[in-house]
Amino acid sequence: MIKAALLILVLAAAGLFFWRANRPGPENGPSDPLPPIAARRSNAPAALPWVDPSKQQASAPAGKAAGQPGPDAGNSAARQAALSTVRAADTPAQKLALLDEILLSRNDNDPRLDTAFNDLSPQTKRLFRAKFRQLPDEKRNELGTVVYLLGRNLKTEEDWAFMREVAAAPPCLSLQDCSMQAKTEPDAHVSAGVEITLSYPAVMALKRAERILQAGPGSGNPDAAQALQLIAAAKNSPSKTVADLAANIERRYSRP
């Protein structure tokens, strides 16, 4: 009888221990959107626009190089924090988790976009390409962000083939549903900027090609030929925005 009671007691203690070890934190439940990264790292409240700017910390952006004084000091701290995270997150799965976290935050000024995705391994790039294919077409910014990051890591033919595929992809017809054009009354005012967003992944691929061509053609720029191939593929895009942008870039950077 005593043994049974002791067993129950041990089980109860184990239950308590397990609960304490696994309970969610006081701030962020599993469904809560993530606050800006710098704000979370500094344990400060999420930065809000109506805060007195003089008292407000940088909510997310990258800062100057570490050690520089001045108003960007908080940003430097954020960058340092971001760099420390980079060291921790270096497996493909961790990189993907980090990418997911940033995409979920909808914070394009997360400094880790600049620091955590450089020199991606082939495995990580494969994971990112798979992520790209899993995302719904309507996730224009997320898709474009993945292309943007992969574009910073172009090394193999496989990498370039993916970029060409993105550049020549069928256009997204509306932000609500890529498969169908919006049925609306004409309104010239409402469509500002939408063209870029609808073509955003392909535009990201093209901008990377443009960046490569800016370094100049020739033997000193071994990726220039690949970049021109990408642009040639984009010129055939059914998207007018993409085709026009490709034509403009080609006009500027092609050899006479």
Binding site: I2, I8, L9, A12, L16, R23, G29, D32
Partner: peptide, 29 residues
């Protein structure tokens, strides 16, 4: 009495663990 006390203590501990577990109620996002 000792056995009864131990069982009561165990049950109380279990109840505390269950009652205080945070519900995973999602915010209205």
């Amino acid at each position: 009495k000792v056995v009864t006390g131990l069982i009561a203590l165990a049950l109380a501990a279990l109840f505390t663990a269950v009652a205080h577990k945070r519900p995973y109620a999602p915010p209205a996002d």
